[in-house]
Simulated assay, not measured.
Amino acid sequence: MGAQDGPTLIASVQRAFRLLEVVGAHEGGAPAKQLAREAGLPLATTYHLLRTLVHDGYLRKLDDGGFVMGDKLYALHTGSRGQAQLTRIRPVLTALRDELSAAAYLTFYEEGEIRVAEIVDGPRAPRVDLWVGFEDAGHATALGKCVLRELDDDSRNDYLSRHPLADLTPRTITHRSELLRRLASSPAAPAVMDLEEYALGTVCVAVPVYSGHMLGSLGVSLRADRLSQVDQVRARLVPTASRVTRGLSLTI
């Protein structure tokens, strides 16, 4: 490679970013000639960059020939926003872990699945052995059951139709009617528990949280011999969940 390759590549990246900035200033889209003029780029260079950015999903070409932001840019923005939100609430989860000496978990219901977004654990607060993915264990974890209880009937039925109630321990609820009955009659609402249903020797408590309109759950796992402390745990989880919801719902 020649000695000029580095600066040339950097300049190309700068031109691409400049073009993206100009496209972003036109909500309804703008044609290539206008974009080239506003970005201060040669038309041939603009066409080349536009083809590349459209091909890679960063821009989208409209039927009228204009260009707008593509799905990949929106995905990048959403991902960075989610990371910033988690960074903001991680101290709250850490404080919860330290106060209760229990690993703290945060999940969200995304695209029909219950997914773990964050786990804050430590030497004195080890996480439960995630031997079965949470996506397939919603019926057996407090975190999953909390989400299932808060879902509307259609969403809950859709999830259960796609996820068999696998027998993970002798205590796991494996009959749909029994699971629904217990979700509807949870005496400790808004808290939900699992009593060694996911892993023997571990009990969990969870309460609902929201990130905007996205449903999730906040929970902790405890050794089964700490079951007598559940009331204390629940008393801390409820206000902490409110703090997490506020933190997640703030705009960035």
Rank of each mutant, 00 (worst) to 15 (best):
M1Q: 13
A3F: 10
D5C: 05
P7N: 06
L9D: 10
L9P: 00
I10G: 02
A16D: 04
F17A: 09
R18Q: 08
R18L: 03
L19T: 04
L20H: 01
E21A: 10
V22N: 00
V23H: 04
A25L: 13
A25T: 12
H26I: 10
E27S: 15
G28P: 01
A36D: 05
L41V: 00
T46F: 02
L49Q: 06
L50P: 01
Y58V: 02
R60Q: 14
R60D: 12
K61R: 15
K61V: 09
K61F: 12
K61H: 13
L62N: 11
D63S: 08
D63I: 01
D64N: 14
G66K: 07
V68N: 12
M69G: 05
D71I: 13
L76H: 10
L76A: 14
H77E: 14
T78I: 08
L86R: 11
I89Y: 00
V92E: 10
L96K: 03
A104H: 11
L106E: 01
T107P: 00
F108L: 11
Y109I: 04
E111P: 07
G112V: 03
R115S: 14
E118C: 04
I119R: 10
G122L: 11
R124A: 12
A125W: 06
R127Y: 06
V128P: 03
L130S: 02
V132T: 06
V132Y: 03
F134A: 14
D136H: 13
A142R: 01
C146R: 02
C146F: 03
V147T: 00
R149V: 08
E150K: 04
D153V: 15
S155F: 03
R162L: 13
R162D: 13
R162P: 07
H163F: 10
T172W: 03
T174L: 03
S177C: 12
L179W: 03
R181S: 08
R181G: 04
P187T: 07
V192Q: 10
V192K: 09
V192H: 13
M193H: 00
L195W: 05
L195T: 03
E197G: 09
G201T: 08
C204F: 04
P208N: 00
P208W: 01
Y210T: 03
S211R: 11
G212Y: 05
H213V: 09
M214S: 10
L215F: 02
L215C: 00
V220W: 02
L222V: 04
L222H: 03
A224Y: 09
D231M: 15
V233K: 05
R234I: 09
A235I: 09
P239V: 13
S242E: 15
R243L: 15
V244C: 11
V244S: 06
G247Y: 04
T251N: 14
